[in-house]
């Protein structure tokens, strides 16, 4: 897949309607046909976009992780049945029907990929970023994850084993990053600010307190 497609080239020309790409014209034609035939409801389309652009995203997952860090009983439920534990916080549904949470430790670091397409736990992380769906990530992370982590500026201790989860079925994986040092007594809200999207995929680590200091 072309990571640097015309989507990027045209991103900078959104205002210029005289230069619509072939793809833009095709999508407009399709939407017109589907609407006129009565196959799609334009209000439903807007709702779908609004849901994933503004409501569902990695802040959901960050709350799950922060709660697991704070509440040992919740952590145990999350590791036992992540789908149910995540549903306790109200995050359910499409692309999160069967979730498994995998916990990072000093001995093992977990990384998630879908080499065959783009499987990703939507209810807790939202839609995947372009790099997650791209050929470089999908091809390399199962073979040379340390080199891929270096692309993200992440270096793990040599003694940490890397465990890659290729999401080839409808099971979705959520990484629970290690809780940073120096956060004893922090509230779940404070902790959630340390949990990045990438730390829940395994291509990043949770932020240290110093990184968010004002």
């Amino acid at each position: 897949m072309n990571n640097h497609s015309e989507t990027h080239a045209h991103h900078h020309h959104d205002h210029d309607h005289s230069e619509l790409s072939e793809t833009e014209l095709r999508v407009r034609a399709l939407e017109t046909i589907l609407t006129e035939k009565g196959y799609v409801d334009p209000v439903a389309l807007d709702l779908l976009i609004e849901t994933y652009e503004t409501k569902v995203g990695p802040r959901n997952g960050a709350q799950v992780v922060a709660k697991a860090w704070s509440d040992p009983a919740y952590r145990a439920r999350l590791l036992e049945d992540a789908t149910a534990a995540i549903a306790e916080l109200g995050y359910v549904g499409r692309q999160g029907e069967h979730v498994v949470a995998v916990e990072n430790t000093p001995a093992q670091h977990n990384v998630v990929v879908c080499t065959l397409c783009s499987c990703y736990p939507w209810p807790v992380l939202g839609l995947p970023p372009v790099w997650y769906k791209s050929a470089p990530y999908r091809s390399r992370v199962v073979k040379e994850p340390r080199a891929v982590l270096a692309d993200f500026g992440v270096t793990l201790p040599e003694g940490t084993a890397i465990r890659v989860w290729d999401s080839t079925a409808e099971i979705r994986y959520l990484v629970i990053p290690m809780r940073p040092a120096g956060t004893e007594g922090w509230s779940e809200t404070q902790l959630a600010d340390l949990v990045t999207r990438d730390s829940m995929i395994g291509t990043g680590l949770a932020r240290a307190p110093a990184e968010i200091a004002a």
Partner: peptide
């Protein structure tokens, strides 16, 4: 089916 293929270059986070 891309797992293990070479030549796609670095991962470029945005």
């Amino acid at each position: 089916d891309m797992g293990g293929m070479d030549g796609f270059g670095p991962v470029v986070p945005e």
